[in-house]
Design a protein around this nucleic acid. Structure first.
Lengths: 217, 217, 217, 217
DNA sequence: TATGAATGAGAATTCATTCAT
DNA sequence: GATGAATGAATTCTCATTCAT
């Protein structure tokens, strides 16, 4: 019961901070703003977190924890394009939930060396997870590359960059983000790999059935 | 001569500000820092610029001015893949020169409605310029799309996002940016459109000559 | 058994506080630091002491209690220079044990009128004790003063000041305090009264035997 | 004229700080208190001094500057006991003017390594000055020591400690400091060296004339 | 006795900006 | 055009202390 209160306060602070950071950016949101918004004294906020940096770190820890389960799937399951779609959508959700970070990531990482190191570690393991995920498509024949000609490493990187920055792209253009926009980003990423999606025998040289597959919700 | 001095001071301020913003971010760089670094009094800085926002706006005006000539080419010239490469490199150079902005763009635009509007206008016209540029490839047959099947709008958007965020991607991963990295980003973008680059008759079904073309420096 | 625990906690707090005060000064040591260092909650600390002032008062009470037995000797005992030496050494030990107080005494007394009054009372009675102690030397003929010429009151005050401030003098000069230094301070005090130490008949006009006496450990 | 204003503000800050520090101690006096008391904004105080430490350093620099001329006399002048008296009085005045420092010296030096180093340097050169000053008495025969028996080094150190701590001794005992008290401290110091003041031939074995000399104002 | 979350005043410091010269 | 002293609100963070449990 004691524990519950602790968690509540800590989580209340983190939740409030994320909301304000997303709304106004970390620079404009002071620790006093967070405390006031969470209806507590500044002293209490500092009782739970040593400083602003630590709040940001704790937020990112929350975020990191949400990523791993998305891209790491049991080995014995056959992944489909539908799996890719659903993972990308979950990915977008996290990116949106913590969008303040992606808007200021370089500055934030520059200001906190410890965070930078941790972040790069997390990114590395996330990339490995995602590459392994993609690797399954190649193995299962859903994706086909001409060895020595097609660089699937490049396509993967391009897809990664688009996935990470799609929401920011919308925001910079003043576009309101909604689920339709997330779908749009998803199609965008799939459009990069579309030429490499295998055409099953007997289906002719038409992309139609894939088109159908890609645009299903 | 009078004018010249005015311009010099203004430009000195802008140049100093860009350098410091790139190094430390707009949040950490105060107007007094800029003045000190430019070896002038804060009063003088404020004589030339109404406030910090106006400095940032002036910097972005400089940046906007550099973009237009890159993507707007005379109509009668036949564009080649080599032209695309060189334009993209020039693009990267601008992105690098004003990288502070791309690192904090959303926050900066959120904080300054006037700037936001201007920026979106600039982006729109830049997109039109670039789309027109790409359009020429399609017209000239260098790029081939299956109407109704391939969405070249999507590919263009994906390419744009990758182009705009490639440097940030490197920075976030702690990679030092140099000309080799710019090349790498360039190949990345080209890899997206590679499947749509036309194979000239008589050249067989090999991608070899394109490979050669893409990897030329 | 109940009582024992109370005493233990109280004494643990006092002991911890003295250690931290000596290390960092009363200003830098918060009640929370004391509680953390003593491995208890701040609430518990405040259960035992009303506030920080009261902790300091209790510490000084401990100190005062240690002084009385040093300088008050049974009347029927003949005091020697050796007694003076040993008392001064014990004196130094107390001064060192509670050195934080002597470093900040004036500020501490100024901030707490009650403490100030108590302290001055204690000092007065200590001075009386010490003067009585010295008086015995005069009575016993070990010290000889020319009445009306030599002001032994002054010599006593000078000795007192040197005794009280010798450790601070070392600290201010960055000298590490060890037992050799305590000896040194002791000799310093004795050097003030050396001219008044009586030369026994038959010992010539040499100071040699006194020299020997003074430098014995 | 510009310079004058600068000096005035800086000196106003230092003067106000010394006054408040002497009254309440450095711990209780915040930079905001100083600014308010000096009738300026906190910002302006920080325009002139980087931080509180720097204010304290500047104050001590003022103090150090006042010491040197006191104890360094031209070589060709014959120093008298009267010179010693007047120097000691000037010394007391400085100690009184900056008494806050002597009350908290160890804590202040511990908190600022740079200050500590400078202070110890200053103390060393001050000791040399003073020792040289005393040396003249020995040379001129005013003071006589039995070599190998009397340790005049010790007497000097004792005198130094008494001189430095006389005012603190008064304060701790709740005694108001006035010029009579300064005289008293002076006599105290002289009482230590009295046995070594030479008796001129023909003046008998009485200390009377010296007594007269020592107690003159 | 003891815990530990919570308070809120206040400390040091920064910064965009103004203004008299 | 240029200087630099001055402002005052805001920011981060600390700390003695309280109180429900």
């Amino acid at each position: 019961m004691f524990e519950v209160i602790v968690l509540r306060t800590k989580e209340l602070i983190l939740h409030t901070a994320v909301t304000l950071f997303n709304e106004q950016g970390t620079g404009k949101v002071s620790t006093n703003h967070i405390a006031t918004s969470a209806q507590m004294s500044p002293g209490n906020l500092y009782y739970h977190f040593k400083n602003k940096e630590e709040i940001i770190r704790a937020i990112l820890d929350q975020m990191y924890a949400k990523w791993h389960p998305i891209w790491s799937l049991p080995d014995d399951i056959q992944v489909t394009l539908e799996d890719l779609r659903s993972r990308l959508l979950l990915n977008f959700e996290i990116l949106w939930e913590y969008r303040f970070f992606y808007r200021e990531a370089i500055a934030l990482l520059q200001a906190d060396a410890e965070l930078k190191q941790k972040h790069q570690q997390m990114m590395e393991s996330r990339m490995l997870d995602q590459e392994a995920f993609i690797g399954r498509f190649v193995q299962s024949g859903v994706l086909q590359f001409n060895h020595g000609v097609d660089n699937h490493r490049q396509l993967f990187t391009a897809g990664w960059i688009v996935a990470t920055n799609w929401l920011g792209f919308l925001e910079m253009n003043g576009v309101t983000v909604d689920s339709a926009r997330l779908q749009e980003g998803l199609e965008l990423i799939l459009s990069i790999i579309k030429p490499y999606i295998a055409i099953h025998a007997g289906e002719g040289n038409s992309y139609d059935h894939i088109e159908k597959k890609l645009s299903e919700d």
